[in-house]
C-alpha cells in the first residue's frame, strides 16, 4: 500500500490517510510498519496521527454520524440536535457505541448551509434536521442499543 508513493517524508500524511481509509483507523502495527518503512521515528508519526483530526487511532463504528456545528448550523440549533443524538445513543462526540454500531463526530461546515442544521450518516445528508427526527432516522441504521 505504501508503494503508491515515493519513500519520502512529505507523503507521510497521505500514507496515513490511506491507512485510515483502508482500516477505518490506524492500527498500531501499521503505524510501526510505516515508521520502519519511511525511517521516521514512531513518536513523530504518533504526533501527526494525533494532530490531524482526519486520522484516528481508535476504531470507528459501523456508521459514522457527523453533526455539523458550522456557524450557520449552530445558530439554527445544531446543539439540540447533538444533545438528542447523545441522549439516544449514550455517547459523546469522538466516541463509539459499545455495540460498535455508531460513531459520533462534530464537524465544522459541510457547505450545505441552506439546509441547516445538517447531519450526515456515512455519506448520506439529512438536512433541516430537528431533534424529533433523530430516532426514526437512527432506526434505519439499526437504532440505539436499547431498541
Amino acid at each position: 500500500m505504501f508503494e503508491k508513493y515515493p519513500k519520502e517524508q512529505r507523503y507521510t500524511l497521505a500514507m496515513l490517510q490511506d491507512l485510515q481509509k483502508e482500516y477505518g483507523y490506524i492500527p498500531r502495527e501499521k503505524l510501526l510498519e510505516l515508521s520502519q518503512y519511511l525511517d521516521i521515528p514512531l513518536s513523530k508519526l504518533y504526533s501527526i496521527a494525533t494532530f490531524y483530526k482526519a486520522l484516528s487511532l481508535t476504531p470507528k463504528g459501523k456508521n459514522t454520524i457527523k453533526v455539523c456545528d458550522g456557524t450557520a448550523c449552530h445558530i439554527r440549533s445544531s446543539k439540540s440536535l447533538l444533545d438528542e443524538i447523545e441522549n439516544t445513543l449514550g455517547i459523546k462526540p469522538g466516541e463509539t457505541t459499545k455495540d460498535g454500531k455508531f460513531s459520533l463526530e462534530i464537524v465544522n461546515c459541510l457547505g450545505s448551509c441552506a439546509i441547516a442544521p445538517v447531519m450526515v450518516i456515512n455519506d448520506k445528508y439529512y438536512g433541516k434536521m430537528t431533534s424529533s427526527k433523530v430516532r426514526e432516522i437512527l432506526k434505519e441504521y439499526g437504532g440505539a442499543d436499547d431498541e
Binding site: 500524511l13 497521505a14 496515513l16 490517510q17 501527526i48 494532530f51 490531524y52 483530526k53 482526519a54 486520522l55 465544522n108
Partner: peptide, 8 residues
C-alpha cells in the same frame, strides 16, 4: 494535489 488532514 496535497490533501489536508482535518486541521483549521
Amino acid at each position: 494535489i496535497v490533501r489536508g488532514g482535518g486541521a483549521f
